[in-house]
Design a protein around this nucleic acid. Structure first.
Lengths: 108, 108
DNA sequence: CGACTAATTAGAGTCAAGGCTAATTAAGAA
DNA sequence: TTCTTAATTAGCCTTGACTCTAATTAGTCG
């Protein structure tokens, strides 16, 4: 799980909304595309961004593609974000044992 | 707390690193600026981004400015992100009572 | 006041992100 | 095979993000 990719993927209202919808269960690309006032190709790029972060996965079901949330990556992302944004109360350092606590990332 | 602003602020490695540093305590703008290989004006824009998200706050201390983490907003952001990325195990809907669970945000 | 330090604002350049239409691939149905 | 539907890729344009140098503001001290 790459936090940078996840944060980039979450950095758009439509993509956040897709995540929220998929929490209630899988949905087809077409159904999701109809929920927003953008073109289908644009929606396709949003799906791609979420797939690159591995937050969602798509499976062909005949002619349509069914997208579902990747719960594992979502959990990992939450942990990483808790580690980043606080979670400093003592035993919180459970995950910071494996994490790089305070190592300056190279700028892009 | 605006999740969109927070996610935008977190969407850069240097800004994430600043947050991580400030978890250990306040730091001056100058000290932080020296930690990364970018110009001071560039660092100033990063501070501005974090301030706009209200993740950090600066106080003048004579000639320098001391930045410290805004723990309240950091906590709120964590809650919002947990709400977004899962946290679906039954009683988890504690925070989703107040939150807009599944309302399509308008695209920008 | 004048000089110095810390930090920000201004202006400009580069590059990625987001959007569209049009064209293309993939799969099923006639 | 041919037609239709679903989804993606290609090409293009616009906007916003990131960075720099140079100039400017804010504060301290001699």
């Amino acid at each position: 799980m790459k936090l940078a990719e996840v944060l980039k993927a979450l950095n758009h209202p439509i993509r956040r909304d897709i995540i929220a919808r998929l929490k209630d269960g899988p949905a087809t690309a077409g159904d999701l595309a109809e929920a927003y006032q953008v073109s289908k190709p644009t929606m396709s790029t949003h799906f791609t961004a979420l797939k690159e972060a591995d937050l969602i996965r798509g499976e062909r079901d005949g002619v349509t593609i069914l997208y579902h949330l990747n719960a594992t990556v979502a959990e990992e992302a939450m942990s990483a974000l808790m580690d980043l944004l606080g979670h400093n109360d003592a035993a919180a350092s459970k995950s910071s044992a494996t994490s790089n606590s305070r190592k300056p990332e190279p700028s892009p």
